[in-house]
Nucleic acid binder design. Structure first.
Length: 451
DNA sequence: TCTGGGGTCCTAGGACCC
DNA sequence: TCTGGGGTCCTAGGACCC
């Protein structure tokens, strides 16, 4: 048995924990750059506001109904997520953190131990609410896909009290009939259109298609697994998250710029800043990377811009894995210069680190690298080219004095007509965040005072 | 004026290996 | 007349997830 616990309107709920005056009122949270709606309270959903709606398109509706608007505050959401996951780790045998607001619980064998898992699921839910203030729903079922399905039904049907346990074939069949095929985990827009065109409208219909049909029309083995999981046959196990943190197979950092950029130096500075952040996350995870991708994108919404909207370049690092920002930056420069088209207005850039592995699993030296200076002893060479000490100091300074206190110079915006370089200036790639709430749980100056 | 960011898994062709 | 089979790695892209 799997449990799936999912926080209700997570970002909105985080804002409400510290500002309870927003309870019962419509509230939305915007994406980076205040671009789109990415979290909506129940009241906001009732107004017809949709996930992903561009802010500028719904601005009037928001004003008209006095909807509270927040910029996203990831320092707050990340910390609240950590608290939720920590509690789950205390009450479940194994937890897989699936996203910032969701976790799978391994409940194998718990039925024989506890009897009905309904009461247990309610207890977990109440525990999270009591310790973090975050409301959740729980689905329990024999496969992950069915646990997601149960969770979705629990969210929509308030009469269920936030929990749905699919403990019999009859209840599973009933649940499958409740859910439109497009709401099944793993069925996106493209597949939903294909399925409904073929007369497959509900999850129950999808559970009846043949293995070969699923392979042919739903992305091969992925589709075949999806159908099996709906039938109650598990294809995916639980991948426990070690000590409440998530270890990733790739790390990326990307941003839409605050304004379109056509100067190479501006885009390079942005790439350097994103790379610095990605490398920081890499080191925090205790890994090195040996594959680097850089991409730059044009504005896909502009009428006069033709596809492709994005170009990427990937490199397997010739000198092996590293977590050194300056080493990675050297390669990132080369990749960017391959992608650059002069006279183009760029809208966004990003970097991705792949091929992650713990350091020291086989240092590959560079055959063509310049010979080390004669005074350097052989055991010091690795330190010079990889400089773990420098990176550790960089991370420690930024941890203590705030992110970006010490940076590689390439990532510092050049002085321009919008201001001067330095800590006070806004980089040209930085976007808007007009309505950001305080970092209530992660910054001393932002602590709430209780009288 | 104005449309997010960070992930996973899979596919497929080409270069290369023995 | 006529040119193998079984692999890996690299790179780019597509579909999906929250």
């Amino acid at each position: 048995m799997f449990g799936l616990l999912d926080c209700n309107n997570f970002y909105v709920s985080c804002e409400r924990v510290f500002q309870p005056r927003y309870e019962g009122r419509p509230v939305v949270v915007l994406s980076n750059n205040d671009g789109n709606l990415i979290s909506r309270s129940a009241e906001a959903k009732a107004l017809g506001l949709k996930m992903g709606d561009p802010y500028f398109q719904v601005k009037e509706v928001l004003k008209q109904h006095d909807v509270a608007v927040f910029s996203s505050n990831y320092a707050l959401y990340g910390d609240m997520s950590r608290r939720v996951m920590y509690h789950l780790g205390q009450v479940a045998p194994a937890v897989e953190i699936y996203s910032i607001d969701e976790a799978f619980l391994d409940l194998a064998g718990m039925e024989t131990y506890l009897g009905n898992l309904d009461a247990y699921a309610h207890k977990v839910r109440a525990g999270v609410k009591e310790r973090t203030g975050i409301p959740t729903c729980v689905g329990v079922a024999p496969t992950k896909t069915l646990a997601k399905l149960a969770n979705r039904i629990a969210k929509k049907d308030a009469a269920l009290g936030g929990v749905l346990y699919l403990n019999s074939a009859e209840r599973r069949a009933w649940a499958l009939r409740q859910v439109p095929v497009g709401d099944v985990w793993g069925v996106g827009r493209q597949y939903a259109a294909k399925l409904t065109a073929a007369g497959i409208d509900s999850a129950a219909d999808l559970a009846r298609v043949s293995d070969s049909w699923a392979r042919k029309f739903l992305g091969g083995v992925v589709g075949a697994r999806l159908v099996q999981e709906l039938q109650g046959r598990p294809c995916a196990g639980l991948h426990p998250s070690e000590d409440g943190t998530l270890s990733r197979q790739s790390i990326s950092c990307s941003r839409t710029f605050g304004r379109p950029l056509s100067a190479y130096s501006d885009v390079l500075a942005a790439v350097a800043a994103f790379l610095s952040r990605a490398a920081e996350k890499l080191r925090a995870q205790g890994d090195t990377a040996h594959v680097l991708t850089v991409y730059i994108s044009k504005n896909r919404f502009a009428a006069n811009v033709l596809p492709p909207f994005s170009r990427s370049a990937t490199l397997t690092l010739p000198a092996g894995p590293t977590a050194d920002t300056t080493v990675l930056l050297g390669y990132a420069r080369a990749l960017l210069s391959r992608l650059w088209e002069p006279g183009t207005a760029y809208h966004k850039a990003g970097v991705v680190l792949d091929g992650l592995e713990p350091p020291g699993t086989g240092q590959q030296l560079d055959l063509f690298a310049p010979a080390p200076a004669p005074l350097v002893l052989p055991e010091k060479r690795a330190v010079l080219s990889q400089r773990p000490g420098l990176m550790a100091s960089l991370d420690a300074l930024n941890e203590r004095f705030g992110r970006g206190t010490v940076r590689v110079a390439t990532a510092v915006p050049a002085p321009g007509h919008h201001g001067t370089a330095g800590s006070g200036a806004r980089a040209p790639w930085e976007g808007k965040a007009q309505w950001r709430s305080p970092a209530f749980t992660t910054r001393l100056e932002d602590l709430l005072l209780v009288n």
